[in-house]
Simulated scan of single mutants.
Amino acid sequence: MHSIPDSAFRKSSYSHPRGNDCVEVADLPIGSAVRDTQHRELGHLLFGAKEWAAFVAEVKHDG
């Protein structure tokens, strides 16, 4: 798994502002990484740039 520094992650704008159901995203040259704020120790999922763009487009469409 790629090592990504904690400082690269930011709270997703789609996370609940007051709840514990937060997701963090890191924008990378190869795509994006996503992790659960409550379980950072479990690592992250990596998505290629095209996969991530398709996912974000779908979320915005269903928004």
Rank of each mutant, 00 (worst) to 15 (best):
L42C: 14
D62I: 04
W52A: 08
Y14S: 05
K50V: 12
A53E: 12
D27I: 11
Q38F: 11
A8H: 11
S32G: 02
N20Q: 11
H44G: 05
I30W: 13
A49Y: 04
L45A: 10
S7I: 09
S32W: 00
H2K: 14
K11Y: 06
K60E: 14
I30F: 12
A57T: 02
K11A: 11
A8Q: 13
R40V: 10
H2P: 09
P17D: 08
A26C: 08
R18Q: 12
H61E: 09
V56E: 14
P17A: 09
D21A: 12
G31P: 05
H44C: 08
A54F: 02
I4H: 00
H16G: 13
P5N: 00
I30L: 13
A53V: 06
V23R: 07
L46N: 00
K60A: 10
S15L: 06
Q38R: 15
R18W: 09
L28S: 00
L46R: 02
L42S: 14
M1H: 09
K60C: 09
G48A: 14
S12V: 02
D6I: 04
L28M: 10
H16C: 08
A57V: 00
P5A: 03
N20H: 12
G48V: 02
A53Q: 15
M1F: 05
D36Q: 11
V59H: 00
L28Q: 01
V25P: 03
D6M: 06
F9P: 02
I30D: 11
S13E: 08
H61G: 02
V23E: 01
V25Q: 02
I30Y: 08
G43V: 04
K50D: 15
G19Y: 08
V56D: 10
V34P: 02
K50W: 00
D6S: 09
R10L: 08
T37H: 15
V23G: 01
E58F: 02
A8K: 09
R35E: 03
M1W: 03
E41K: 04
S3F: 05
Q38N: 12
L28N: 01
E41W: 01
R18Y: 07
V34Q: 06
F9C: 05
L42A: 15
A57H: 02
H2T: 12
S15A: 13
S12D: 02
V59Q: 07
G31K: 09
N20R: 14
L46C: 06
G63A: 12
